[in-house]
Amino acid sequence: MESGEVAAARVWLAEQGVREVPGGWVRDGAPEELLTANQVAHSYAADVFAEDLDAGERLRLAFGLLDLLDEYWVTCEIRFEDDGPDGPLPADVLWEGYRRRLEADRDAEAVTYSLWVDWFEDRTTTAAAFTAVLGRDVDRIVAGPTPDLLRRAVRVLECSGPVPWAVKEPAYRTALRLPALHPALFKGLLSSYHDVYGNLVPAGALELLHRLELPPDTRHFAALRYVLGAGHANHHRTPDAWDEAVHACS
């Protein structure tokens, strides 16, 4: 059964003359032209924020459209609105919407990609975004790890590379207390090194790396330990260091 937000988004699209059919979407008046979900998102997602509703209701409608279409572009329109002349969006509705979708037992690629490239890479939003989706809850998650909370923590840790080290290090240290989060924490450390905007402090990251409980053959573990031990903070600042590490550890 569809959630209320998805049902509302479906009704709203129907009011725009767009309906789902087997294999895609069609517009009224042009039923022979099959549209993809991506095309629908690009054509209609921005219009949600022109509706005569309060800001929270418009945002919930946008999240319903995201669930219905599963397209990253919907998250782009959410970010544009937050950063636009009518923004910011209500933070409680915004981050509750992200948290719920990070916890859901369904694909969350559009949401995690949005966090990574739109909220975490932007130094004006990264601290607030990371705190809202994980930082303020990580103690509670580690103390009482339910499946939905674990899904959220794993997904955020894995895409947290661009978050400044000072912001994410406390959450990383808390996550260490729960071995179930160690693989995701390793991916977070790895992306903190490899991402273009990745951020870490080599000594601190190396200390955390040594405390992870991982299979001995974990891919890239030895190379990451090597570059961090040599004091390298980011792959793109010293691009030859990783090749040297891989060769030395092979």
Rank of each mutant, 00 (worst) to 15 (best):
L34K: 04
W165E: 15
E57C: 07
Y172Q: 12
Y172C: 11
F130L: 03
R177Y: 11
L59R: 05
D82M: 01
F49G: 07
A129G: 10
T218A: 06
A37V: 01
A104I: 02
E207D: 15
A50P: 05
E81F: 04
L59G: 02
D92E: 15
A175I: 08
V18F: 02
A184E: 12
K168E: 09
R58P: 12
G204H: 09
G87L: 07
A127W: 06
P31I: 01
V133D: 09
S192A: 15
P215M: 09
R27S: 12
D122W: 03
D243R: 02
V133M: 10
F120R: 01
R155C: 09
V227D: 12
P183G: 14
D105V: 10
F130V: 02
S114R: 06
E121H: 03
Y113R: 14
R79P: 01
G56W: 10
V21I: 06
R99A: 13
R219I: 11
K187Y: 13
R123I: 07
A8E: 12
V196I: 03
D118L: 13
A230S: 03
K168C: 12
P170L: 05
E213N: 14
L134W: 05
K168F: 11
A222R: 14
F130N: 07
E96I: 00
V11M: 02
A230Y: 04
T146L: 07
F120Y: 14
A184S: 15
H220E: 15
L13P: 06
D52I: 00
R155L: 05
W165Y: 14
W12F: 04
A127T: 11
S250H: 14
A128R: 15
R27H: 14
A37K: 00
G198D: 07
R151E: 01
V111D: 04
V133L: 10
P31Y: 00
D54R: 13
A184L: 01
L149G: 02
Y172G: 13
R58Y: 10
C249W: 02
L189P: 08
V156N: 03
H236T: 05
A166S: 09
L13I: 01
L189S: 06
D118K: 08
R60H: 10
G198S: 07
R237G: 13
P147N: 07
V154M: 10
D70I: 04
V48E: 10
A30V: 02
G161C: 06
G135L: 08
L13N: 02
L150T: 11
P31F: 02
A233T: 08
V117Y: 08
G231A: 04
H42N: 06
A203D: 15
F80S: 10
G97M: 05
R136K: 11
F80W: 09
L178P: 08
R136N: 09
L181P: 05
G144R: 07
A110D: 14
A37Q: 00
W242Y: 03
A104C: 05
D195S: 03
E121M: 11
S191E: 14
V201C: 15
G135P: 13
G56P: 06
V142D: 10
L134T: 03
E96K: 13
L150M: 08
N234D: 11
V142L: 13
R79C: 00
P88F: 02
R27I: 03
S192F: 05
G144D: 14
D92G: 13
D86I: 00
S3F: 12
E77Y: 00
E103V: 01
N199Y: 06
V196Y: 12
E103A: 09
S192G: 15
T131L: 13
A248P: 04
F63L: 08
A248Q: 10
Q16F: 01
G188C: 02
